[in-house]
Amino acid sequence: MISPTRIYLEPAAAELPRGREVLDRFPDAELVEVAGHWQIPELHGDEANARRWVRIKREALVLGVKKSLSARPNGRSAHFIAPSTANGCAMACAYCYVPRRKGYSNPITVFANIEQITGYLARHVARQGAMAQPDQVDDRAWVYDIGENSDCSVDALVSDNVRDLVELFRGLPTAKASFATKYVNRDLLDWDPRGRTRVRFSLMPERTAKLLDIRTSPVAERLAALDDFRAAGYEVHVNLSPVVVHDGWLEDWRELLEALGDAASPETRAQLAAEVIMLTHNRALHEVNLRWHPRAEELLWRPGLQEVKRSEGGGVNVRYRAGLKRGLLDELLALIDRHAPYLRVRYAF
């Protein structure tokens, strides 16, 4: 998945224990000092080298220090978005929304100041007190998404940051960690989360995933992991996302929902819940994908079905037209009711 030959390094990160651990993990990598983890000219402008992206993701690693610590309110998937302990990803999903300020290949950046981050989170949780009443995020705990800008299962291949977070929340009775993943990392099964970390396995029909979910674990492997992670003490949910509309899409989702029911034991189904997220795509990413993976764009870029949505940062995104999207979503929700009636949908949009 990742075998760094070059590590772009903020000098301050190398002075921290976690930074030294990461460097010791990859002793043969070339070290390139950089002024800041966003200021790496070699990784900017790599849109022109789209065919090298997977190689960049596998061979480049960035080691930095997280400067700004904040827990942003969320309200959908979690109550708060925790400060990142990493950003970027070694996988290459064709629809990825993750910020691309390091260039579209966006290799993993590990933040070495993990003690600062965990200390901040512990204080933030303490300030919240007990949750007053249940909501769609959780019945009794404040939920913190610890993987908004990365995949924590892959991050755990690079450093112990994710394990430190799981161990932190294990001791916080009023809060839970949460992250979505497309990669099955069975090392996490030994971490003893004691119900305080929610793992959300992202799922889509296998036929679509083979085209769009590049370098991820096969969907069948993700399904096979559900019971094991629940038995290991994780709360296990699923993300049905992104929902991509194409000829035969509902039949594909029916097959996936049936496979989900077959894979999950009664104990796992009893605590399972889902998020359903329709596709949002990006015009700039569409243009780049045409250079390296044009077949993906046959599914992702559907002008006849989509409308423009400006992002907060001014980017041009596209989503299924509002009136059409509601109908498509209702069709999928009805399919869930028929073929996975045990699956509680926490939210859908």
Rank of each mutant, 00 (worst) to 15 (best):
G314F: 03
L335A: 14
N317P: 06
K309D: 11
E312H: 12
V318Q: 04
G313N: 10
R310K: 13
L328P: 00
V308K: 15
L300S: 02
L335D: 07
Y320N: 02
A340Q: 02
R319A: 10
A334N: 14
V318G: 01
L332D: 00
E312Y: 10
L329C: 05
G327K: 11
Q306C: 08
N317C: 08
G315Q: 09
N317S: 09
A334Q: 15
P294D: 10
H293R: 15
L305N: 04
L329S: 06
G314E: 07
R321F: 00
R310L: 13
R295N: 10
P294G: 06
E331L: 12
V308A: 15
W301Y: 15
E331R: 15
G304R: 08
R302T: 05
R319N: 03
V318E: 10
L300Y: 00
I336G: 01
K309M: 09
N317L: 10
G304N: 05
V318R: 02
H293W: 14
L299D: 01
L300W: 03
W301K: 11
L324H: 03
L305G: 06
A334F: 07
E331S: 14
G323H: 04
E331A: 14
H339P: 06
V308W: 11
N317V: 00
E298A: 14
P294M: 11
I336S: 00
D337K: 15
R319P: 03
G323E: 11
V318H: 05
H339A: 07
E312S: 11
W292A: 03
E331F: 01
I336Q: 00
D330Y: 12
L300P: 00
E312G: 08
V318L: 12
D330L: 13
G315C: 04
E312K: 14
V316H: 14
A340P: 02
A322Q: 09
L335V: 09
